[in-house]
Simulated assay, not measured.
Amino acid sequence: MWPNGFLNITSRGRRSKPQVYLTFDDGPDPRFTPAILDTLAQHQIKASFFVLGEACAAHPALVRQIAEAGHDIGIHSYSHAHPWRLPEAQAREEMRRCYHTLADITGSPPRLFRPAYGRIRPATLQQASALQLRTVLWSCSVIDWGAWGTLSGVSRRLAAVKPGDIVLMHDARPDANRPQVTQTALQNFLLTDKAASLDFCGLSQLLTKPD
């Protein structure tokens, strides 16, 4: 049986409003995150970053830069281990360790959680509830990884976003050219008429505004 936390999962906003929620997973990465931050700043856009604890520990100044720019920061996991392949206690510890690492760096407790690979399980939902975290998935992935993560493919999927979408992107990946593709596709998309018709927001706006 799923815990009550199953009801505390968000995967998109309301289609009747023009808001779109850009999210970035797996960072921070000093090779790519600063360029994405620069792009967001140029267009005065707030986004949400789901970070890895080990990357935060390695690059705390970059975490603080994300926070100081006004973006939302949530936990992803500590090491990006697949939560279904871990013992329950270890899956919980991945969350706790990331939570405390991020809180120690920013001085504020995080409020958002996205499970690694988007894979939920009762143990992690229970841990999210214990840490007072809102679990956030996505409604649109630009698939900026693997064989489909080409500039044309990512650009095409970005162009298809709809009002209410929570958009999954990455600012760090093992295939190191992909975040550069993401940043280039995002920069190009934000110059389009379609992007001008949308209101790009951090997830905190979606989760705190009444319907």
Rank of each mutant, 00 (worst) to 15 (best):
A81D: 04
A91I: 05
A57M: 07
G70Y: 08
F49M: 04
I66A: 07
H71Y: 09
H82R: 12
Q90D: 08
T106F: 02
Y78R: 15
A61N: 13
A69G: 12
A81N: 06
H80L: 01
T101D: 01
R64F: 00
T106A: 03
L86E: 03
R92K: 15
I66C: 07
P87F: 03
T106S: 07
A81P: 00
H80Q: 04
H100R: 12
A91N: 09
Y78H: 15
R96S: 13
A89R: 15
I66F: 00
A81G: 02
W84H: 12
D72C: 08
V63F: 00
A55P: 00
I66L: 11
E94N: 08
Y78M: 13
P83D: 03
A91H: 06
H59I: 00
L62F: 02
H59Y: 13
Q90L: 09
E68F: 01
V63M: 06
P87Q: 08
S48G: 11
D104R: 12
L62H: 11
Q90R: 14
S48T: 15
H76C: 02
E94H: 08
E88H: 08
P87W: 03
V63T: 12
D104M: 01
E54I: 05
P60M: 04
P110F: 07
P110Y: 09
Y99G: 07
A81L: 10
I75T: 11
A91P: 05
L52H: 03
E88A: 14
E68H: 14
E93T: 12
G70Q: 11
